[in-house]
Simulated assay, not measured.
Amino acid sequence: MTTFKSRLRGDLTAAIKERDELRSATLRMVLTAITTEEVSGKSARELSDDEVRKVLAREAKKRREAAEAFDKGGRADRADRERAEGEVLAEYLPRQLTDEELASVVDEAVAEARAQGVEGPRAMGAVMKIVNPKVAGVAEGGRVAAAVKKALAG
């Protein structure tokens, strides 16, 4: 059985052989982030596939945020590079929920919270507790929170 991390290493080797600079640089950066995560803490350990995916998702989010910052700073060349790295990372992550799919999950959670007698703006925490496990890894926290606020306001 191959681990997710070994798949990344294999893809890095292939990218280097193919002289794919963008892919090899991006995969090197992710593998470094994984190694850093493995040696942080009291003792070194091997990350599980789920933990590796979390590191990947965090790195992809960093790329998106950096691209936005470079756009605002008028550095389109750097923004394009960050987006391209993000696209490489996206290939390894689960497909993100569309806004409609996310709204549907949130609406169900709001109904569930109301059934438990929790309503209005105070329901935010209760609804988030219901939604988060259902969308873990397929919807970013900020998007989820915005969708929940919108559903509770409506």
Rank of each mutant, 00 (worst) to 15 (best):
T3A: 09
T3I: 07
T3P: 07
T3W: 07
T3L: 09
F4L: 15
F4Q: 06
K5Y: 10
K5Q: 15
K5G: 05
S6T: 14
S6F: 08
R7I: 14
R9E: 15
R9Y: 11
G10D: 13
D11P: 03
D11V: 04
L12E: 02
L12A: 01
T13H: 09
A14T: 11
A14I: 08
A14Q: 10
A14R: 10
A14C: 04
A15C: 06
A15R: 00
A15W: 01
I16A: 04
K17S: 05
E18T: 02
E18W: 00
R19C: 01
R19N: 05
R19G: 00
D20R: 01
D20Y: 00
D20L: 00
E21A: 09
E21Y: 04
L22P: 00
L22A: 04
L22I: 01
L22H: 02
L22F: 04
R23Y: 05
R23K: 15
R23A: 07
T26C: 13
T26R: 02
T26F: 07
L27Y: 04
R28E: 11
M29I: 09
M29Q: 15
M29A: 15
M29K: 13
M29D: 14
M29P: 05
M29N: 14
V30G: 03
V30S: 07
V30A: 15
L31M: 11
L31K: 08
L31S: 08
T32A: 10
T32G: 08
T32C: 06
A33Y: 02
A33V: 05
I34T: 03
T35N: 08
T35V: 09
T36F: 05
T36R: 08
T36K: 08
T36Q: 06
E37Q: 08
E38W: 00
E38Q: 06
V39P: 00
V39I: 11
S40M: 08
S40P: 02
S40F: 07
G41V: 03
G41N: 04
G41R: 05
G41C: 06
G41L: 07
K42Q: 13
K42G: 12
K42L: 15
S43Y: 14
A44R: 12
A44K: 14
A44M: 12
R45Y: 10
R45M: 10
E46I: 13
E46Y: 08
L47M: 06
L47K: 02
S48M: 11
S48R: 12
D49I: 06
